[in-house]
Design a protein around this nucleic acid. Structure first.
Lengths: 194, 194
DNA sequence: AGTAAAACTTACCGAATGGTAGGTAAGAGG
DNA sequence: CCTCTTACCTACCATTCGGTAAGTTTTACT
């Protein structure tokens, strides 16, 4: 693993994440990515064999961040309810601080329908499984069916994710002020309905 | 308006909708679209001045379907609560019957961040505004703030939309059986938390 | 200082892209 | 029968794409 913070690979991954998340895989060229760093596209191909390999590295890093997010909450010594609320708060906070992450994952959900390969991994599997387990220990949900808990958890994740990718559009439609008001009450409104 | 069902424009729009929603704007070439119809790409450029114009026509049609969906519910003579539930049921049903529509809108939410032009219209404005108004007449929500109602409504729409674009991925992660179970209880789980 | 690996560069390529220009075949209406 | 419009076509073009090959510069280490 390239652990070094300033490893050249990492600066490519960071830039690629931003561009892939904003313009998508096909909308981003290798020249775009390297250009942002003042380099030629061949500098990328030195570190990553293909464009797909670069994309895979980006996806892996983003998935690792989401995994870390849910792992972190699970390991804390909190009540089940507190864990869930903390998880949702952290997830929402993360989509705000690192909007590229959520956008990339959403694009991946849309794209892997077509750009499938035998080797494609399901980076989100761990995140989804662990997230859903957070509902299992809630008294309110313990005696519901597994399917109901799964549906409920995916609704929470979906609500947060969809809102975060919509923010630029909503800002244009509603104006910044109304968006900020809505953002301000988003978490409490979401949690109040659990 | 090209009202005729078999208008040549319409067959291009239908095919383009499918491909744009599956592969995205940059992932779909004019040759791809025309190829599916056994034609050359110039046949498209005869009907639509540019690729952007074709995309715009597709987007307009999809947005019109969402508008019709919410308009249809609002005009019915139902209680506020029944209206909301009917709306959510119809929205979920629509994302299942016409999965291309939801995927295209989600891509547009992601893309218009970058592919903005002065002329770009906010196709979703009417849909969002009218949808949110559905919560206004619910006793439970009447005395909450406008921002809270807006947040709640967008959470419902987001939950449905995100789930629908995730179905292929979830089917691969969970398997078809678990996905079907979850789908089966999705609406009731969602509604029970309003 | 010397050297070898790492991190780039220039030069090039075939394929695909959106789009232009200039046709042609078919049908409708007078 | 003639003409105009619709709906396509072939031919072509400049640009961009991901990727290969072969050098050159920078860095790290002895």
């Amino acid at each position: 693993m390239t652990g070094r913070i300033d490893s050249p690979k990492r600066k490519f991954i960071e830039t690629a994440l931003r561009l892939f998340s904003e313009r998508g895989f096909y909308g981003t060229s290798l020249a775009d990515v390297s250009g942002e760093l003042g380099l030629t596209k061949q500098s990328i191909l030195y570190h990553f064999k293909t464009k797909e390999a670069l994309y895979g590295a980006v996806l892996e890093e983003v998935a690792a961040r989401f995994d870390a997010l849910v792992n972190n909450v699970i390991q804390q010594d909190l009540s089940a309810e507190k864990k869930l609320k903390t998880f949702l708060a952290h997830l929402l906070e993360h989509t705000r601080e690192a909007p590229y992450d959520g956008r990339l994952i959403t694009r991946e959900l849309l794209d892997n329908l077509e750009r499938v390969e035998a080797s494609r991994k399901w980076y989100l599997k761990h995140f989804l499984t662990e997230s859903t387990s957070l509902l299992q220990d809630l008294p309110k949900w313990r005696y519901r069916t597994e399917a109901e808990r799964t549906a409920a958890m995916y609704q929470l994740i979906g609500a947060i994710s969809y809102f975060s990718i919509s923010e630029p559009t909503l800002s244009a439609i509603w104006g910044k002020e109304k968006l900020d008001e809505t953002s301000g009450v988003f978490l409490s409104t979401l949690v109040s309905r659990i």
